[in-house]
């Protein structure tokens, strides 16, 4: 069930449409992107802690602290931008379609919609030690017809479960019960 104030861009549910799953990329994907910036955030503090300041004048120390704070402010803005791009990347599966909302940059947003009745093949790739141990991977959905409307989401948690959900819905669409 979606929260009442959840309002992804482009999601207007069709009559009879229900949201089956809403997924973001695995937290490890965010960690890999943010970790270098976290190091860069604290690096000047670590360096400053090891610099002998006894010979430095008060004005020079104040200037150094000023520039450390400036550096940390810049890195702070970068970290929150990276997190924003991660958080706005959403994969929504409903009983009628798949929506791949990709936030490429702050002002570059791509919303891809695949109709469930056109889904032909769902492929799961789990490669590498981290993907295997932390249970995330790449999910590719191929559709019938031309036009390059296939979707791919990298770093989705539990991709096999998501594949099963999609295959179950497509199977119900193609073979409706009595």
């Amino acid at each position: 069930m979606l929260p009442a104030d959840f309002r992804p861009d482009g999601l207007v549910l069709l009559p009879g449409e229900t949201v089956v799953s809403v997924m973001r990329k695995h937290w490890f994907i965010l960690f890999i992107k943010v970790f270098p910036y976290m190091l860069a955030f604290f690096l000047p503090l670590v360096i400053f802690a090891f610099i002998p300041t006894t010979n430095l004048s008060q004005s020079l120390i104040a200037t150094i602290i000023f520039f450390i704070a400036t550096w940390m402010l810049i890195i702070l803005m970068v970290i929150y931008t990276v997190w924003t791009l991660y958080y706005l990347d959403i994969w929504i599966v409903t009983n009628k379609r798949i929506m791949d909302i990709e936030q490429l940059a702050l002002f570059n947003r791509e919303v891809k919609t695949l109709q469930m009745n056109t889904v032909q093949d769902v492929q799961v790739d789990v490669s590498g030690i981290f993907e295997t141990l932390l249970h995330f991977g790449t999910l590719r959905v191929q559709t019938a017809g031309t036009g390059g409307t296939d979707a791919k989401i990298v770093g989705i948690p539990d991709p096999a479960l998501e594949r099963d959900i999609i295959m179950q819905i497509t199977s119900q669409i193609h073979n409706p019960g009595p």
């Binding site: 929260p3 803005m77 958080y87 909302i101």
Partner: peptide, 28 residues
């Protein structure tokens, strides 16, 4: 606040970001 977020997450992000930013500006 515009895209795909619950108000709780957006508010928490706004407070932490603005809070840390203003602390750093105050130090400067």
């Amino acid at each position: 606040f515009r895209f795909a977020m619950s108000n709780l997450v957006a508010t928490a992000a706004a407070f932490s970001y603005m809070g840390l930013g203003f602390v750093l500006l105050f130090i400067m």
